[in-house]
Design a binder for these strands. Structure first.
Lengths: 337, 337
DNA sequence: CTGTTAGCGCCTTCAC
DNA sequence: GTGAAGGCGCTAACAG
């Protein structure tokens, strides 16, 4: 890695001259054409790449934070954009130079990514979609800057989260109020406690209403639409299709709709479907039929995460602080009022 | 903005002591508990935030690049995640400390965002989804580092792009080969030339085959599913539904499917649908019916963008360099073979 | 036209 | 236990 000093030596000029030329101020400062050319040539030859840290140290405005945003790259990948957008919107509101580094990581392998990054160079870290394993790892280490978790509660770290249990309860009530007591759930066999919480609220509410969801109606699948298609077909083949189905994500719900369409199961007449909406509203509004759901307000959560982060960095809030946001209920044709 | 120097002064110790304590090496270096507490307290009170640039300058590994990724936040927001993922995958492959700053910008307002960021502090800039206006602006200014455009050709800047015209031609051929000559297109009235190129290839091919698409079958709408729903209903009401329809994006295609389902128009029997796939395959595979399309390989493009960027920074490739990637044709039920 | 110099904020070595 | 000093790479006065 060469520096302007190397260039200066090779060109037989001072480092100041090199700096001037390489910053395009050669004309202005009346450096001779010949010298300029020589400097450019040598910079090229030496493969000079400016050290941005040094530049910044010297001349950036001081109020500048570097924030990392870690997100798991599983089926939830689609909503990253909206969280990022929310974060950035909030960044624009703050009048500070905040640089957001987006870092994908593989589920259960947060450790690997966290090690690979040079975390000592961030002022704050936002982490989304952690599995239990990732959480365990995070709890076991020391992070030298504030951490904000997205939709994940913790004693040790700050977070922006939702009342997930109540969300599940409300979905159950939606069915119960209509007198639909025959329910099923389509859920992931994973270690994401948030999802467990949705489902738990749903199951508990049915149980409390005197209509516990039978074990056979708790269907596990992985996180893909195709898996949901299979699961639905299996239910159908075994004649266990419930009158109402709660899906853990819209990705699964789309699979259910697809399978039902093939099987000739009419929604909502034969079966009503409710889901958690993690993708853009448009995808669920124009599903056939449009999906009833609770949408997670990704952008809003992103905003909150960043705002909280800045408050933590600036010590305006104690660490940990937990904030809650509300889900948004949308009633579509898959489970009309 | 306070520094360790300020803390040292306030605490009546040297900056070295402060540095040691704040880096958690107090025990190790046997700084007295009392001093440590005092330092922590003062750091808190003075609202100390470490300057990451200074830290890096002092201790980062040398081979370190700062790269900005600008992306437009319109309807294409959904695919940001996959591009970012591709970029980051490539970053992991390179054994370098590459920090990716992700910056969303509003279409036509690249200038605003570009001005707001401190671009002199990046080693390279990747820009996605530029409108003509944004391109004009970019052409009018000088950027002191390599720029890589995503799916956008330019004389001045490097880019990773696709043979968009041929993509449109191939879609047309798909219909023509089956003897379907009655075609329509659903397209945006926008200034994204890429999209224009797809459509142009499609229209030219039909024209060359002796079946030019009539003006009335070139339907403009905005970028939302709802707009596509309206457009489809209007076509139907005016009895102009073509036998085949090429949609500029899957967001529109979903609206078309939704509208056709409501109208009782059978796909593909009454009308075949082909689209450009910008979202995850799953959404289109499990549409009802599944969508025939050309998928844009977002991850792959991201990888190429970053790889090219590093090559440009290290002067291993001339600037500008243009690279091409191939689209992936998927045949679904909306337009079977 | 070009060079000298003084830091930017931080960490580390060495000395006391 | 703690302090002094040097230097990371760069820029901007200021001095010729």
């Amino acid at each position: 890695m060469s520096t302007i000093k190397d260039i200066a030596k090779a060109a037989g000029v001072s480092i100041a001259t090199v700096s001037i030329v390489l910053n395009g101020k050669g004309r202005e400062r009346k450096i001779s054409q010949e010298t300029q050319q020589r400097i450019y040539k040598i910079a090229q030859d030496l493969n000079y790449v400016p050290n941005q840290s040094a530049k910044k140290l010297r001349s950036a405005k001081k109020d500048s934070y570097a924030i990392a945003f870690y997100w798991a790259t599983d089926f939830r990948i689609n909503y990253l954009a909206r969280i990022t957008l929310g974060i950035q919107e909030e960044i624009m509101k703050q009048d500070k130079a905040i640089h957001l580094t987006v870092v994908p990581y593989k589920v259960d392998q947060l450790q690997k990514q966290l090690d690979a990054m040079q975390n000592e160079f961030f002022n704050g870290i936002i982490i989304a979609n952690m599995s239990n394993k990732d959480m365990d790892y995070l709890n076991s280490i020391h992070i030298p800057c504030p951490v904000v978790l997205f939709n994940r509660e913790s004693d040790k770290y700050s977070s922006v989260t939702m009342d997930n249990y109540t969300i599940g309860c409300n979905v159950a009530k939606h069915f119960i109020d209509k007198g639909i007591f025959d329910a099923g759930v389509l859920t992931h066999d994973t270690s994401f406690p948030i999802m467990r919480t949705w489902m738990q609220g749903f199951l508990d509410t049915f149980a409390k209403a005197g209509h516990p969801v039978p074990e056979t109606n708790i269907v596990l699948c992985d996180t893909s639409s195709s898996s949901a298609v299979e699961a639905t077909k299996k239910l159908y083949a075994e004649k266990r299709m419930p009158r109402s189905l709660f899906c853990e994500s819209d990705v699964l719900a789309h699979g259910v709709l697809y399978a039902c369409h093939e099987l000739g199961v009419a929604i909502p007449q034969d079966m009503e479907v409710f889901t958690i909406g993690i993708n853009m509203a448009e995808f669920n509004d124009y599903a056939i039929p449009s999906l009833s759901r609770v949408d997670i307000p990704m952008g809003e959560i992103g905003q909150h995460c960043l705002h909280l982060m800045v408050d933590l960095i600036e010590k305006k809030k104690p660490n940990p602080t937990v904030q809650f946001v509300e889900g948004k209920e949308i009633i579509g044709q898959s489970s009309p009022r």
